[in-house]
Computed example of a mutant assay.
Amino acid sequence: MGEASGTRVLVTGASGFVGSQLCRALVEQGSAVRAMTRRPEVYSGVGEPVAGDVFDQDSLGPALAGVSAAYYLVHSLESADFVAKDAEAAIAFGAAAAEAGVRQLIYLGGLGADGDELSDHLRSRREVEQRLGTAGVPVTTLRAAIVIGHESISWELTRQLAQRLPAMITPAWVATLTQPIAEADLIRYLVGVLDLPEAYGQTFEVGGPEVLSYGDMLRRVARILDGRPLPMLPVPLLTPRLSSAWLRLVTDVDPVTAGNLIDSMANEVVVRDDRIRELITGEPLGYDDAVRAALADCRRAGECW
């Protein structure tokens, strides 16, 4: 792990699922954290709140002033035009970081082979990777698939489907392979690459120890929840559009976000290069243990049973 103690760091998306946990972990290991938010007056998380919005270029300079590293954890999946919006925001943020003298940008992207026909969501993640660094600040990218943790949108889709349905009519994407990662392991990697010279300008793939289909994940969550099987009837003609409509009926996840994520579920997202484990030691949690930890957090929050 890099010598991060005392580093002044900006975390964008500090109020989000990953950002809130990351702020806490960074403070615990000695970093001075600025939590960038559009409404600092109501921010109640860890770190010093600072006003900033990646879609307001004038706000970025003051937020980045004096920091040596910045985490870029924002996206616009809830917007129909997220591809264009995220590309524009990445360029603006990278330019502001260069002008402020930031030494390292750290970005959380998505897994998926570059040669595949990637979904708009995953293609946008790749574009953001590239555009963040166009002004010259070294970017460290961590590419991940589903993050298993309370309030992760992808995990919420999995949990709610497994919890609310006695059986499922399933689209073809339930057979797609993915490599989920526990929230704790993702945070460990994000903290670990901070101020690590070997990580500057590098892209790393991160995941848990198991490669699973989405169907396998759903069945295992159902078993952990109440020990029951989750019968599935594949229906190949269930298109992404129909899948999104179906999810609106069964879950309370934002429908636009869910639709954009569903489009990505046709892409296999597995780790093909695990060299980050040579830089940052520690055994990642297995899927079942990650699920139990996420469910425990959900129950503590009173949001599931």
Rank of each mutant, 00 (worst) to 15 (best):
T7S: 12
T7Q: 14
L10S: 03
G13N: 09
S15Q: 10
G16E: 07
F17V: 08
V18G: 07
G19R: 04
Q21I: 03
L22C: 07
C23E: 07
V27G: 02
Q29R: 15
Q29C: 14
G30A: 10
M36L: 09
P40E: 11
E41V: 07
Y43N: 12
S44A: 15
P49C: 03
V50I: 15
A51I: 04
A51T: 06
G52S: 02
G52R: 01
F55E: 05
Q57D: 12
Q57V: 13
L60T: 05
G61R: 01
G61A: 15
G61L: 02
G61H: 03
P62D: 00
A70N: 02
L77K: 02
E78D: 13
E78Y: 13
D81F: 00
D81P: 11
A84K: 14
K85L: 15
A87K: 09
A89V: 10
A90V: 02
A90Q: 05
G94F: 00
A97V: 08
A98I: 01
A98K: 12
V102R: 04
R103T: 12
R103G: 11
L105I: 07
I106F: 09
I106Q: 00
I106C: 04
Y107H: 13
L108V: 14
L108H: 07
L108I: 10
L108M: 13
G109A: 15
G110W: 00
G110C: 04
G110A: 13
G110T: 00
A113V: 08
E117C: 09
E117W: 06
L118Y: 10
S119F: 05
D120W: 01
R125T: 03
Q130P: 09
T134F: 08
T140E: 06
V147F: 12
E151D: 15
I153K: 05
S154L: 06
Q160K: 10
L161P: 00
A162F: 11
R164W: 10
L165I: 06
L165E: 11
T170M: 14
Q179S: 07
V191A: 10
L194K: 02
D195K: 14
P197A: 03
A199S: 12
Y200I: 03
Q202G: 06
Q202A: 13
F204H: 05
E205D: 13
E205T: 13
G208L: 04
G208E: 03
P209C: 05
E210F: 09
V211F: 06
Y214C: 02
G215V: 07
G215N: 03
M217E: 14
M217V: 15
I224M: 06
G227T: 13
P229A: 12
L230H: 08
P231Q: 01
M232C: 08
L238R: 10
L242V: 14
A245W: 12
V250I: 15
D252L: 12
D252C: 12
V253T: 03
D254R: 06
D254H: 13
D254W: 08
P255L: 00
P255F: 00
G259W: 05
N260G: 01
S264K: 02
M265Q: 07
A266S: 14
E268N: 11
R272W: 03
L279H: 04
T281Y: 07
E283T: 15
E283Y: 04
L285C: 11
V291H: 04
R292Y: 06
R292N: 08
A296P: 06
E303S: 15
W305K: 10
